[in-house]
Design a binder for these strands. Structure first.
Length: 281
DNA sequence: CTCAGTGTTCAGTG
DNA sequence: TCACTGAACACTGA
C-alpha cells in the first residue's frame, strides 16, 4: 500500500532498527525481477558487515546510507513493504500484523540482521517492487528523475501554479506523475482533489490561482495527516474520502461520503478514480 | 473463474 | 522532441 506516508513510516521503522548499527547477516531471495540490474548475491556482499549511517527517502523511494558505497535502494511497487519484528510479537509495518511464526514474512526478498539483534525484512508479494544498488542514489536514475518531494519540498504557491499552467493533462494524471511530484499515488490524488473541490479530469493548465492554492494546501495537509497517523488508515479523519472510496462492491449499495454525497468511479489518468461530482468542479 | 489493484515503464500516437 | 495514453508487468485476494 505504499504511497509517500507508507514509505515514510517504513523509513522511520528502518531507521529505528538500523541507524548506527552494523549489518551482521544478509539473506536475499533468488528473484531476478525484484533485484533489478544487480545479482542478489552482489547486494548481499555490498551489505554484509557495513554500518548503516542513515535511511533516506524521496517520494516513494527509500535507500540506506552505508559506511561504504554502493548503497541499496528500495521501491515497494504496489504490495511491498518493510517489516520489523517487535518484541515477542511481530509487527508488520506496511500491511497489518502477522504472528511470530510468520517471521520472516511471506514473500521476503531481503532480510537483514544487525549486530545488536535487530532485524528488518523487505517483502513483496506481487513483485512490482525493486531492489537496486547505486553509488549516489539521489544523483542517479530512477531517483534523480523524480520531481519535488510532495511532503518535504512543496514549491511555493506561485511556483506551483506556474508548474501546473504548463501541463495539459488531467490534474489527476499530473498529480500521479512522479517526475512532477514524488510520492503521490492513487488514493492521495483522489483525496486531495476531493478536499480541494476540483474534478480529476480538469486540465491542469485551466486551474485558477485560487484552485492551485487550495490544491497545494491539501497536498500538504493530507500527506502530513497521513504521516502523523503513522500511515495507519484507521487513524485518518473519519470524513476523508479514503474510508469510503472502496465501500462499494459489485451489486452492493452505491458508495457515498459520510455527508451522503454520491461517489463516482471512473478511469482518469489510467487509474480507477473515486470522486464526488456534486462538489468537485 | 474473473477481475481489479495505495505503481512504474515503455511503445504508440498526435 | 514532447506530452500524453494505454497496455504490460506479476500475483493475490475478493
Amino acid at each position: 500500500m505504499p504511497e509517500l506516508p507508507e514509505v515514510e513510516a517504513a523509513r522511520r521503522a528502518a531507521h529505528n532498527v538500523a541507524a548506527g548499527r552494523r549489518i551482521s547477516g544478509v539473506w536475499v531471495a533468488d528473484d531476478p525481477i525484484v533485484f533489478e540490474g544487480v545479482a542478489p548475491g552482489r547486494v548481499r556482499r555490498a551489505l554484509v558487515g557495513r554500518r548503516v549511517k542513515a535511511v533516506r527517502r524521496h517520494g516513494k523511494h527509500l535507500w540506506l546510507e552505508l559506511d561504504r558505497r554502493p548503497w541499496p535502494c528500495l521501491h515497494f511497487g504496489m504490495t511491498g513493504g518493510i517489516h520489523v519484528p517487535a518484541g515477542r510479537a511481530v509487527r508488520l509495518v506496511s500491511d497489518g500484523r502477522v504472528s511470530r511464526a510468520d517471521w520472516p514474512p511471506r514473500f521476503t526478498k531481503l532480510h537483514l540482521r544487525f549486530a545488536d539483534g535487530g532485524e528488518l525484512a523487505l517483502a513483496d508479494g506481487r513483485r512490482l517492487g525493486r531492489i537496486r544498488l547505486r553509488h549516489d542514489p539521489a544523483a542517479e536514475p530512477p531517483i534523480s528523475a523524480l520531481g519535488f518531494d510532495a511532503w518535504r519540498a512543496l514549491p511555493s504557491p506561485a511556483r506551483f501554479h506556474v508548474m501546473l499552467r504548463a501541463r495539459n493533462a488531467p490534474i489527476k494524471a499530473v498529480l500521479l506523475d512522479q517526475s512532477f511530484a514524488a510520492g503521490i499515488g492513487n488514493w492521495i490524488a483522489d483525496e486531495v482533489l476531493y478536499q480541494a473541490g476540483i474534478a480529476p479530469k480538469r486540465r491542469a493548465s485551466t486551474l485558477s490561482p485560487a484552485e492551485t492554492r487550495r490544491l497545494r494546501a491539501r497536498v500538504r495537509s493530507v500527506i502530513g495527516g497521513a504521516v502523523r497517523a503513522g500511515s495507519d488508515g484507521d487513524r485518518f479523519p473519519r470524513w476523508w474520502l479514503f474510508h469510503r472510496r472502496w465501500g462499494h462492491r459489485r451489486g452492493g449499495p452505491p458508495a457515498t461520503t459520510v455527508r451522503g454525497e454520491h461517489i463516482r468511479h471512473e478511469t482518469v489518468g489510467g487509474r480507477t478514480t473515486a470522486w464526488v461530482p456534486s462538489t468537485q468542479r
